[in-house]
């Protein structure tokens, strides 16, 4: 099976690996897993005062497609509002990386991770506003 150049590039040179302090108010953390394949993915966003995502980091233990999917999402969300980031669909990720059908679930994991990170950030923001 041939993987796309974009996928291989994200896998071999993953962008934005790392962590933010998950307790920080301006950080949202999404931690999701796909038990069927034993993958675990952490995706974090750092939101600026202007409401734009200024930085994103990830850490993924899983197959190459899962790593590439999360790497791509961290690139995509930078500079976006959280509403825009929330609109990212797994099908966009799968299409961009030309994921083979058996690896589509890796893009689902990445979509769920960014949604979870946004939910975490919003929960913190709501709490702070109260």
């Amino acid at each position: 099976m041939a993987y796309s150049e974009k996928l291989i590039d994200h896998y071999e040179n993953p962008r934005n690996i790392g962590s933010f302090d998950k307790a920080a108010e301006d950080v949202g953390t999404g931690l999701v897993g796909a038990p069927a394949c034993g993958d675990v993915m952490k995706l974090q966003i750092k939101v600026g005062a202007d409401g734009l995502i200024e930085d994103a980091k990830f850490k993924t233990f899983g197959c190459g497609s899962a790593i590439a999917s999360s790497s791509l999402v961290t690139e995509w969300v930078k500079g976006k509002t959280i509403d825009e980031a929330e609109a990212i669909k797994n099908t966009d990720i799968a299409r961009h990386l030309a994921l083979p059908p058996v690896k589509i679930h890796c893009s689902v994991l990445a979509e769920d991770a960014i949604k979870a990170a946004i939910a975490d950030y919003r929960a913190k923001a709501t709490k702070k506003a109260e």
Binding site: L31, V32, G33, A34, P35, A36, D112
Partner: peptide, 25 residues
């Protein structure tokens, strides 16, 4: 049990799995 393509968000379990994999790495 969650099948292929199904994700879970149990923080305790996933944190444990993440930390174990980091230590292994």
């Amino acid at each position: 049990m969650p099948g292929d393509g199904k994700t879970i968000d149990d923080p305790e379990l996933l944190m444990e799995a993440m930390e174990a994999r980091e230590a292994l790495h």
